[in-house]
Each structure stands twice: as C-alpha cells, then as structure tokens.
C-alpha cells in the first residue's frame, strides 16, 4: 500500500456566510491523474487553491506529501506546479525569461534554469518563440508556456485548473498529449474541467462536485455504469413540442428525458430499443444510438439548469 500523496477530510472553505467548499473528502495516490468535474461555482477552484497551499482551509484536514499546508506552505508549494485558470504570465518579459524568472522563486540556480528552459520550451513546442514577448503569443501558446512554467521546479504534483478552456481543438490535443507524457513520467495530475471528453481522456479517477460537495466519485467508466445506462437513444420528432412523447416512450427506457428538441432514452441495448419502437409504429424524424458518456452522468447529477 502506498501512502496517498494528497488527502482531504471534511474540507471546508467559507467566504463570509457562503460555503464555497462544504465538507469534501478524497484521496489521491502518487502517479494518479485525478479530476474534479463540476459546473461553474461548484467549488473546484477553491479546492485547488487549498490543495496548492495558497488559501487556508476554514475547517477539515488536508495533507499534501504528508504535510499540513497550514504550517508547511512554502515547502509544499516548492514541490507542486500550478496551472491557473487565467494566464498569469509576465507580459513584459520574453518567453524564455518567464520560465527562468519563475524558477528563481524556487531558488533554482540560473545555470540549471537555462538548461531546463530550453528543454521545457522544446517539450511545449515553443522553442522558436523563446525570445518573443509573451504579449505576442496566441492563446494556445500562452497556455503551453503556463504549463512549461509550472514544470520549472520539476513538480511531483501538477495542478491544472481548466487547462484547455478557450483553446481550439488542435491546441487542446497537443496539451493532452503533453499531459499524458507527464503522467507516464510519474507526475501526479490534479485536473479540474467542465469538458467531459477531457475528463474521460485524462483522468484515472474523478469526483463530480456541485454546490461545494462531492456528489459522485469513481473511474469514468464506473460513474457511467452507476449513474447512467450503457447506451443512449436520441429521438427527434417532427413536432413543436416533444412533451407528448413522454408517456408513449417511457415503457421502452430505464430512464427518459424530454428536452425541447429531442427525447433521450437511457437504455442498455440501443439498437434493440430502436427496433421495438419502430415495431410500435412510432416513427421519429431522426434517431441516434450512442454510448453513454460522462456528460450524461454530469447532467444527471448537476442538472440542466444554467448555474452562472
């Protein structure tokens, strides 16, 4: 049994009367990649800030590398890398200097930083932009530089708060590829995201947060098995309102959801269900059978109502 690298018990973060994080417990093993899923305002970022020993927990216990962030903040921060939600690069400095200066905060000698900067720029495909000012970089490049910067102290834990929000698909895939490589090198990854595909791609295990609490946890597959069905049938009918189909379709599905533009049937055998529906003379305008995804789990657990 390895000791968890990160452990939280009944963790609370309160701002005035508002509990941003309301008693969460989890533990992460070394080398694992662990995800926090949840809508905006679920308490993910507040949790990240406590883990990274930046903001103090209001209550509960937290241990990182077996140390208490309340008393060993500088030591913990020296061993983790943080990729914040918003880029916090030094706009007036060059790409290379951003890395080298950041490394100085960790008391790393300049000669070593020069070498590490070269390696990290190659790793994040930014070598050609080394001497450009950060202001001139694209969004994806800034994001990669932020990741390179977070790696300058060779962290054992890398914390990524919505790492790919706002990036185009090419940039996202390049980032995912780099995160895979880090994981293979043994870096523990802590990721928050509201992209389900990202969570499925990157996370060994994850928790779903809503209103400051953990509402579900497990591997992506476990979550789908427990909180959804194997497959989903999406049906569209030629009508202004799909409400009328609820009662007619309910017998075919374990669970059914009527949306303004379509009906979702949660089932184990999608093709079989579709065949039986056709047998009953129900003819949708279009029909799609797909595997259940984390998105279905997410929407089921946190609801479809807009939260911001």
């Amino acid at each position: 049994m390895t000791e968890p690298i990160l452990q939280a018990r009944d963790l609370v973060k309160r701002f005035g009367e508002f509990n941003a994080v309301d008693g969460v417990s989890f533990s992460v093993d070394p080398g694992e990649s662990f995800g926090f899923l949840g809508p905006n305002g679920a308490g993910k970022t507040s949790t990240m800030r406590m883990i990274s020993a930046v903001s103090q927990p209001t209550a509960g216990s937290l241990s990182v590398f077996g140390l208490d962030p309340r008393t060993h903040g500088p030591e913990i921060r020296g061993r983790i890398g943080v990729v914040p939600q918003e880029d916090t690069l030094e706009l007036e400095l060059s790409v290379r200097l951003n890395l080298e200066m950041f490394g100085r905060y960790f008391d790393i000698p300049r000669a070593i930083l020069r070498e590490r900067a070269i390696d990290l720029l190659a790793f994040t495909q930014l070598s050609e932009r080394a001497d450009d000012r950060v202001e001139d970089l694209s969004g994806g490049m800034k994001r990669r530089l932020t990741i390179a910067r977070a790696l300058i102290n060779q962290p054992e834990i890398l914390i990524l708060d919505e790492p790919t929000t706002g990036l185009d698909p090419q940039a996202r895939h390049l980032l995912w590829d780099r995160l895979y490589r880090l994981k293979r090198e043994g870096v523990t990854l802590i990721i928050t995201t509201h992209y389900m595909d990202e969570a499925e791609q990157l996370c060994d295990r994850l928790v779903v947060m809503d209103h400051g609490t953990i509402v579900a946890s497990g591997t992506p597959r476990e979550l789908i098995t427990h909180h959804s069905t194997r497959e989903v049938v999406e049906l569209r009918f030629n009508t202004d309102s799909h409400d009328g189909y609820h009662d007619r379709l309910a017998p075919f599905a374990q669970r059914l959801e009527v949306l303004p533009d379509r009906v979702l049937l949660y089932v184990d055998e999608g093709d079989e269900t579709l065949r039986r529906i056709h047998e009953h003379q129900i003819t949708p305008m279009s029909a799609l059978v797909r595997r259940s995804s984390l998105e279905d789990v997410f929407l089921r657990l946190t609801g479809r109502t807009l939260v911001d």
Binding site: S52, V54, G73, P74, E75, R77, G78, V82, P84, T88, L89, E90, F102, Y105, F106, D107, R149, N153
Partner: peptide, 9 residues
C-alpha cells in the same frame, strides 16, 4: 497570483 503559487507568500 503566480508568485504566490511558489514558496513565496
């Protein structure tokens, strides 16, 4: 914010 994620407080 970036500096505070390093050992500095």
């Amino acid at each position: 914010d970036a500096i505070l994620s390093t050992p500095l407080d």
